[in-house]
Amino acid sequence: MTTNAIIVNKVTKRFGKSTPALWRKLRPGKNGSGKPEASGPVLALDSVSFQVKQGEIFGVLGPNGSGKSTLIRLMATLLLADEGNVTVHGLDPAVTPLAVQQLINRVSVEASFFKKLSPMENLIYGARLYGMGGKEIRRRVVEILTRLGLEKRSIYNPMEEMSRGMQQKVAIARALLSRPKILLLDEPTTGLDPVSKREVQAVVQELKERDGTTILLTTHDMNEAEILCDRVAIIHKGKLIALDTPEALKDLVPRLNGHKPSLEDVFIHLTGDKLKEEEKEDIEAAQSMVRALTQEHQEPADQIEPALLEQEKE
């Protein structure tokens, strides 16, 4: 029987204060910069639930700001949920963070390193934090980095002298070094050239097949999701709006000119209408902002609004 490696149970996460600061209460409608007050906290995740099976590659797709990275940070013990809970191999990151941290590692869209230090120095630092030591680390660092296509000489040069693609490969090496049971990949191939992208994808596939590592992957690359992921979840505005295998998701969308839709078609179909609604909301918010500003400064609103109305028509 396949067990669940990750269970996300009705998780809700908001950012920002729910109650304004005292000084803002004293000056309603203003935040000191002359701009209208922001309307409360931002809902990053809205009662999201799903399970990731042990050994599967689980994709999370969603537009920018949809809550993908928030989800990963919750699993990585870097955030605490407001409601609901996450369990990683039965452990709650909020209750036993150290035990969860032993099981996971993460690669984010930004390859974050000590820029002046070399890949070797950065990776040894990372490995020691996970309890590894001795000469064995150096050998493994060289082995992993050369496997990812790094030249030996660049292993000892400062990270700042490397291209972004190379830095991202070092980030992947850092995650692999600790042999995690669960690997959280937050847009790991964003900004990589096609060759590097394929190399990274091959490593991800190999990790699953050879080591049985459970992988949670967020990406904007639909082709990547289709190639790598056993199942894909689509989240939008913090809500889970679809979850199935890539093939089953394609059946959600009607055929276009007799052709089976791609995962990208599914993504646009499921999030596109909502994106239009978002744009409408943005325009309405801008209009109300203009009204507030013109009332404040006694300027006629009809001088400013036509441009926004034109934009709305488009």
């Binding site: 940070r73 990585a76 013990t77 870097l78 150290l98 035990a99 941290q101 032993q102 996971i104 993460r106 984010s108 930004e110 974050s112 390193f113 000590f114 820029k115 990372g126 934090l129 996970y130 309890g131 850092r174």
Partner: peptide
């Protein structure tokens, strides 16, 4: 400053 805060704080270190 270096942008490594999340990596250091998610490591299994008391």
């Amino acid at each position: 400053w270096e942008g490594t805060i999340e990596y250091t704080l998610m490591a299994p270190v008391r």
